[in-house]
Design a binder for these strands. Structure first.
Length: 233
DNA sequence: TTGGTCGCGATATGCAGATT
DNA sequence: AATCTGCATATCGCGACCAA
């Protein structure tokens, strides 16, 4: 995934109202940027950190800048929650995730279950379809270890249950965690910030849901999936 | 059939207003 | 006074719809 145009650098002043951030660009201009991430972004919104923004020429937009990357502890972290689906799609098509390789058809945003949508549906003649739910990970408290979730996510737990339902009727249910930072080599499902999710994860594993984590290489010019990484307890 | 436009849903959480 | 409900907020992408 290559950014359409070179990103602009600046310094974060504050993030507020979920969708907005005030940034002082390196050229001195103070602007308001949209933030394509409604999560808590724990540890990624400290005032004064370096940030990268994209710029859109779309006249319908209220704020043409979009926050894409932040620098934390000397490492670049991607915060755009719209990108992991694209990254995951690229990774699957490139065969970087062996258990998901070789399907002839890949569709995004397919309806299924109780009024839910699956991020990616892989199908093929002669073998079960794979329902792939993509999750964005950008939280890390320990060097080398990414963690999910960074705040309670009821929706995430619901997705795990529905993937379990898909397994029961003969499909594959897959959780795919896209780690949008290059400094991690393991993923941990952490129970302290959302015990409900951790329990749902264990329950889903027992029901046969698969889980994979994808390591990414992040630079100001783009984000690329590299390989899978272990999910540890 | 294709291309463009419109509107809805998803997204998370603080806050204001309403209800008990 | 405490609790609950629903709006605010910006963008994206898809489905539905209309027009050529």
């Amino acid at each position: 995934m290559i950014f359409a145009s070179p990103l602009i650098t600046g310094t974060l002043v504050q993030r507020y109202k979920r969708f907005l951030a005030d940034v002082i660009l390196d050229d001195g201009n103070a602007i308001t940027s949209s933030v394509p991430n409604t999560g808590s972004m724990l540890g990624l919104t400290d005032p004064g950190i370096k940030v990268w923004l994209s710029y859109s020429n779309d006249l319908k937009r209220k704020y043409p800048h979009t926050l894409q990357l932040v620098e934390v502890g000397g490492h670049i972290v991607g915060i755009n929650t719209g990108l992991p689906n694209r990254i995951a799609e690229e990774a699957i098509l490139a065969g970087l995730i062996p258990p998901l390789a070789g399907y002839t058809t890949l569709k995004r945003e397919q309806r299924y279950g109780a009024n839910s949508r699956i991020d990616i549906l892989l199908s093929d003649e002669g073998r079960p379809s794979a329902f792939v739910e993509v999750k964005n990970v950008h939280f890390s408290r320990k060097p080398g270890l990414a963690e999910f979730p960074d705040s309670p996510t009821a929706r995430g737990a619901k997705h795990l249950d529905e993937l379990g339902n898909m397994v029961e009727i003969g499909h594959r249910g897959v959780m795919l965690y896209v780690i949008q930072r290059g400094d991690c080599d393991n993923l941990k499902i952490c129970g302290d910030l959302d015990p409900v999710y951790a329990a749902a994860f264990q329950r889903a594993m027992r029901r046969g849901v698969e889980a994979y984590a994808v390591k990414c290489h992040i630079t100001p010019s783009g984000i690329a999936a590299v390989r899978t990484m272990p999910i540890i307890d």
